[in-house]
Design a protein around this nucleic acid. Structure first.
Length: 558
RNA sequence: UGGGACGUGGCCAAGUUGGUUAAGGCACGGGGUUUUGAUCCCCGCAUUCGCAGGUUCGAGUCCUGCCGUCCCAGCCA
């Protein structure tokens, strides 16, 4: 299957980079991943991370992690720390850690330069006036009455803005470009606003903070970025990005290239909505295993490798797309199939008594940790007279093609021997409480008799030795593919009430007790499960279902 | 109804400066192996590239028109 060793996939950005290297425009590629520390990273950010770090690494270049921390109202060091942890967990290491705030002085000096060259002015209209004079999509804007202030006055005002002589909103520094531009971004965009609030890195040093457009391109130039990759909604900002770099003095002019975000169905991806889900308690936190956040996926059991492979498979292009959740699920299945040790666990247990097995005795069998990969070794699996099997693996009156246990029928116990159902014990209400079986000693794994063919093989766990586990069965967070499609209804109305199904007393093999949080297993015939961080007691582990196994039997019965 | 962008099979997506059989993955269908109805292995799956014209010996690749979808009117990023 796909893995990191797989050859790179062609895409238009990679082609541009290759060409720039061939033509000698650049001899080293430098990219950056520029998150705003105002929330947690999600699977969509992972696409950008894989792209930025991946493309630089492929061509021997480097990537900086740069926090776009220009809005102290929304940002915090906690988010920054979480973001760094997520990037590293995904498997990437930045060349340099930078912050837009590292450049606040340079950004300010460049702004002064812009004022001096007559290309920026202090506007003293209030926000409302600015909005109304900006025009509309089809009508040009009108010039601010303050647009033609003298350079001296602008310089004085801007400095006083910096010095904290004015209140928030009193003035704003604007670039003097073109109020009638068909591109709204060019209608004298604000480049500095007054915000008399402390910044998580610069404290109360500044009373003014640069806007994204001003800070971003210049930060790129300062760092010598060669290719500034961003998402499609910034396409309209490119003329501004270029205008700024053309109107200050710099010998570096990175190329901004836009690509489409990666959307997934059955979830929401906007930071605002994810925050709402957390703050309103619809999920347990940013790392709730149902969240599309990196932290959530990690806790769910997704491996970093599977996420990288997912984005590699999805590709990079400019067409907006929505990728089925099944594709992401397939990426973990594929990765875990290769690496997860196999183990047996019964989620919905019913007791089976092997009537011809000696009472009071038990034994330890050796079972392969991974049948297709002997190098993963074996583990010891205990077996006794009483075992748990999956309730669904027995039917009194089964439909056609049911290969599991039935009255009088035979089935193989995985890694053990063949058993035959001889009796079914029920309670007063007719519920099955116990199933009696006889085992065939000749059919033990390893013996010649094991070659005997029976139609089905089921998993089981020794009653005496079973660990009592809490298993959390996760499903999609929403019950519709696109929770935002319905304009009449709020996306929260589509939250899937069954996205978490807690199983309190699942029975698992003893081996699982040796695992640590983050370790994952394949529960044979069931799915892939990861030990949760809530797992404190090795005798009572807590496991999250990352994803189920493919189930063509269930599909057949749909 | 201003501007910017996108439209290749169910979902992604590759398609070098037009050259002739339209990659690959996922999904799907069929077959085989199998002590996981998993995995794995075969085979199949767009006479066609949003639509309509045009240029050309030849067009997904060029031109024209049309249709559809997305983004932009924060002192957010």
């Amino acid at each position: 299957m796909n893995n990191d060793q797989t050859p790179p996939v062609s895409n238009f950005i990679r082609n541009i980079v290759i060409r720039d290297l061939e033509t000698g425009k650049h001899d080293k590629i430098i990219t950056r991943f520029p998150p705003e520390p105002n929330g947690h990273l999600h699977i969509g950010h992972a696409k950008s991370i894989c792209l930025n770090f991946g493309i630089a690494a492929e061509f021997g270049g480097t990537t900086n992690l740069r926090f776009d921390d220009t809005n102290p109202l929304k940002e915090s060091e906690d988010f920054a720390q979480a973001i760094m942890a997520d990037v590293r967990w995904l498997g990437f290491e930045w060349n340099e850690l930078r912050h837009a705030s590292d450049y606040f002085h340079q950004l300010y000096e460049y702004a002064v330069y812009l004022v001096k060259t007559g290309k920026a002015y202090v506007d003293s209209q209030d926000a409302e006036s600015m909005r109304s004079s900006r025009g509309t999509l089809t009508e040009p804007g009108t010039n601010s009455p303050y647009r033609d202030r003298s350079v001296e006055e602008n310089l004085d005002l801007f400095e006083r803005m910096k010095n904290g002589e004015f209140a928030d909103g009193e003035h704003v520094l604007r670039a003097r470009i073109d109020m009638s531009s068909s591109n709204m971004n060019m209608r004298d965009p604000a480049i500095y606003r007054i915000r008399k609030v402390p910044h998580h890195r610069t404290g109360d040093e500044w009373n003014i903070y640069p806007m994204y457009d001003w800070a971003h391109g210049i930060s790129d130039a300062i760092e010598g970025i060669t290719h500034s990759l961003c998402t499609l909604e910034f396409e309209d900002h490119r003329p501004l990005y270029d205008w700024f770099l053309e109107n200050i003095i710099t010998d570096c002019h990175p190329r901004q290239i836009e690509f489409a975000r990666g959307n997934l169905d059955f979830t929401v991806m906007s930071k605002r909505k994810l925050r709402e889900l957390v703050e309103e308690g619809h999920v347990s936190g940013w790392d709730d295993p149902r969240m599309p956040t990196i932290a959530g996926l990690r806790r769910r059991g997704y491996t970093a490798r599977s996420i990288r492979n997912f984005w590699k498979d999805a590709g990079v292009a400019k067409a907006e797309s929505i990728i089925p959740m099944g594709v992401l699920e397939n990426a973990v299945r594929s990765d875990m199939n290769e690496h997860a040790p196999r183990v047996m666990a019964v989620l919905d247990p019913v007791k089976v008594v092997l009537t011809n097995y000696p009472e009071g005795e038990s034994e330890w069998l050796q079972a392969p940790s991974h049948p297709q990969n002997p190098e993963m070794g074996t583990r010891s699996v205990p077996l006794g007279r009483e075992i748990w099997i999956e309730r669904g693996d027995f039917m009194e009156d089964p439909p056609r093609k049911f290969f599991r246990l039935r009255p009088g029928g035979e089935v193989r116990l995985r890694n053990a021997f063949i058993i035959k159902c001889t009796d079914v014990i029920k309670d007063a209400d007719g519920n099955i409480v116990e199933i009696h079986c006889e085992f065939d000693p000749e059919s033990r794994s390893g013996l010649p008799g094991a070659a005997r063919k029976v139609k089905g093989t089921i998993h089981w766990v020794s009653v005496e030795h079973a660990l009592d586990a809490e298993v959390r069965l996760y499903d999609r967070l929403f019950n519709v593919a696109n929770p935002l499609a319905d304009k009449e209804k709020d996306y929260r109305e589509f939250l899937n009430p069954h996205s978490l199904d807690m199983v309190q007393h699942a029975k698992v093999e003893p081996t699982v007790g040796e695992g640590q949080p983050g370790d994952y297993y394949q529960f044979e015939r069931v799915g892939y499960f990861t030990i949760d961080e809530d797992s404190a007691d090795s005798a009572h582990p807590v496991l999250n279902r990352t994803v189920s196994l493919r189930d063509s039997w269930a599909k057949l019965n749909r």
